[in-house]
Amino acid sequence: MVSRSTGGKETTTRSAFTTQKAGAVNRLTLAPGKDTTVGIGQPLSIVFDRPVRRKADVERQLKVTTSNGTEGSWGWITDHSGRDRVDWRPREYWKPGTRVVLEADLNGTDSGGGWFVRDYRTSFTIGAAQVVKVDLDAKRLSLVRDGRTVRTVPVSGGTPGGDKRSWRGTAVLMAKEGTIRMNSETVGLGDAYDKMVDYSMRLTWSGMYTHAAPWNAAYFGRANRSSGCIGMSTADARSFYDAVRVGDPFEISGGDTKGVVAEGNGYGAWNTPWAKWRAKSALR
């Protein structure tokens, strides 16, 4: 409403206007955490709150710098949650001691599903060269450090022939969760179990862990009789829990499994050949 004086008389003119509705804000979650030290299999992973339809525009704003010129590539995948995700992984496992820095200059960038309203920075360092090898056929798990096997323990994996089988391929240790409640109904297995489990180490979003399983002691090294996880004695689990690091790769083999760990089911990118992984970049 505007008032004017005309010929000594005041008149009032009404006008209306609208402002464009602000676009939706897109936010992201970064892994690993800032200033952490992780294993040689840990990718740099970004999960977006809202769809990313302009992937090339977003990827152009993501700069990865490593302390030793590590060759790597972004790859766009679908997270287990169904959200858009982009991971940066090296061609091969990281070299210990590598320093990795991400500069995501996204402020003002339109993802096609929302605008970014800030920039992001994170960095992390690669720890010791550790690989965990799980042989489901032999029912054993080995910790290999700097190419040398430092310990092997008997285990029991997922029960053959159905939904309780374990996954195979390379999974990356996502988190050391300690003592947690495991309920089979949360992973679609009905009322098979509901118990507190010690020394729990998460390998997939779908619920595969390595953990203490004293109730399965009769099967360690003899038979696979779990509901999909890789169980061992409490003493072995305690020692193993202390030895491994988030980001350590678990190379799992076996003849009767659910299949290969998917790229978005945790960090399954290592199961994709390098040429196919590079092709998942929006800038190739």
Results as ranks from 00 to 15, higher is better:
P43D: 14
K9A: 12
E10N: 14
T37V: 13
P32F: 06
K9T: 10
V47M: 06
V25H: 08
G8R: 11
K9Y: 09
E10A: 13
A16I: 14
G41Y: 01
A24H: 12
A31S: 07
G33N: 08
K34T: 04
S15Q: 06
V47H: 04
V25Q: 11
A22H: 08
G23D: 13
N26C: 12
A22S: 13
T36K: 09
A24T: 15
F17N: 12
A31V: 04
N26E: 06
G23W: 00
I46Y: 07
L30M: 12
G33W: 01
A22F: 02
K21T: 14
G33A: 11
T19P: 00
I40G: 03
F48Y: 13
G23F: 02
P43A: 01
I46C: 03
T11W: 00
T11N: 06
G41F: 02
F48C: 12
T6L: 08
I46R: 04
T29K: 13
P32C: 06
T6S: 07
A24S: 15
K9V: 15
G39I: 04
R14W: 01
F17S: 15
T29V: 09
F17Q: 09
T12S: 02
S15V: 14
Q20Y: 00
L28D: 03
K21S: 10
F48Q: 03
A16D: 13
A31F: 02
T6W: 11
G33Q: 05
R14G: 06
G41P: 07
T13L: 10
G33P: 07
D35A: 13
V25C: 01
D35F: 01
S45M: 07
T19A: 13
T36W: 00
D49G: 15
R27G: 15
K9C: 09
D49A: 13
A31W: 03
A22W: 00
E10M: 12
G41K: 02
G8Q: 10
F48I: 08
T29Y: 03
T13C: 01
V25L: 03
F17M: 10
T36M: 03
G7W: 04
T18W: 00
D49N: 08
F17T: 14
F17D: 05
S45E: 02
I40S: 02
I40K: 04
T37H: 01
Q42N: 13
K9G: 05
G7E: 08
K9L: 07
T36I: 01
S15C: 01
T19W: 00
S45P: 05
L28T: 06
G23K: 15
P43H: 03
V38M: 08
V47W: 00
T29L: 03
T18I: 05
K9H: 09
T29W: 02
T37D: 00
A24C: 08
